[in-house]
Design a protein around this nucleic acid. Structure first.
Lengths: 192, 192
DNA sequence: TCAATACGATAACATAAGATAAGAAAAAAG
DNA sequence: CTTTTTTCTTATCTTATGTTATCGTATTGA
């Protein structure tokens, strides 16, 4: 049941069974209904999860509008990681885009493992480095590519099929544009 | 000589003298001339540095143009961190914007410390988390703020005086716009 | 010191994006 | 199955940005 989660962690660092077992008692399978929130703006996040099935989105509020900035798919960690780390109220909300099955665990437990076990600590570093590299890529794309180029990069990727199931206005936000603008770009690109 | 570097590290994690001494033999003071490169696109980076004096910029090439995406000031770590981590050729170049005095050290040494010492490993995690949080903030600004709002955020910050010494077209890139556009925004903002 | 280069402001024009609204299509809810 | 809601496209209008070019000034380097 938890093996996909363990496998995913072990892409970063190998764990002995004993080390893995330090985490297991705190894992909990949870189902999220569509539109259910996993983390909420203004609240200090205490939990992270590993997505087994389904997908989620992360959004910020600006001028009363939801601005979607990230998606979480299966086999990935999700959660308001930086709120957990800083113990400050989260600036973002995480919502299930579909029915989801996730493995939930308290960040406190992970932190405890970070501080007491070298392998887990290494995992913590490698995970943060992995997150940072992803964010750097994303930032560079936003800085140096035009909206149309960003859209083309997105459809070039391997997430095309998944993306098709996500409402387009969320993807527009993700690319830093308005839904109307994305619709126009799609129209333009098709004609080329 | 190295105390500001140590202090900076100890903002993340306290080190015993013995732990600090593990790093000291590998530190080297280096002066960079204006326009001298510290890391170069296409080359695998092997060194990081801590800036004692001066400032540097990081840029990517796109369509034959340099796109500045980040600045490094004194009392901060600089370098092609992700190239060091991944041992892949760097996508970015780091250039001294002024005469610089930096403390240089091989990433290999740092990695060795990560893997053999718990305090250093913790530093590695906290550093990566810190970098990731900064990148997340930056990304969100790019996604949900308009160019003008981004400029206003920048001048609101505490780096105003430093920024004044940086050529404006670098700052334009950093904000994700063209130099001409930044000039117009500045003009517009003054009149309000 | 002088010449070359880099820098920033501005203008003119073309293009693309934002805002808003309307209508069709698709999905969700009852 | 029908109604309601959400989603997407399209059109119009306005505005901001990109592109290119010019000009005066500041900086740099020989």
């Amino acid at each position: 049941m938890y093996s996909s989660f363990r496998n995913n962690i072990e892409k970063f660092v190998k764990l002995t069974d004993a080390e893995w077992d330090l985490m297991v008692p705190y894992l909990e399978i949870r189902k999220l209904k569509k539109h259910e929130l996993f983390a909420e703006q203004g609240k200090v996040a205490g939990e992270l999860c590993f997505v087994l099935e389904g997908m989620l989105r992360q959004y910020y509020m600006k001028d009363g509008e939801e601005k979607t900035t990230y998606f979480f798919f299966d086999n990935h960690l999700a959660g308001a990681y930086f709120s957990c780390i800083s113990q400050k109220p989260s600036l973002l909300t995480i919502e299930a885009l579909s029915e989801c099955k996730v493995i939930v665990f308290p960040y406190k437990v992970l932190k405890e493992l970070f501080e007491t076990n070298m392998a887990w600590q290494t995992f913590g570093r490698l995970l943060a480095e992995y997150l940072a590299m992803g964010l750097e890529d994303r930032m560079v794309e936003l800085l140096i590519l035009s909206p149309e180029e960003r859209y083309l990069e997105l459809v070039k990727g391997n997430k095309t099929k998944i993306m098709e199931r996500i409402p387009q206005h969320y993807i527009a936000n993700y690319l830093g544009l308005t839904p109307v603008s994305l619709s126009r770009i799609r129209n333009r690109v098709v004609k080329k």
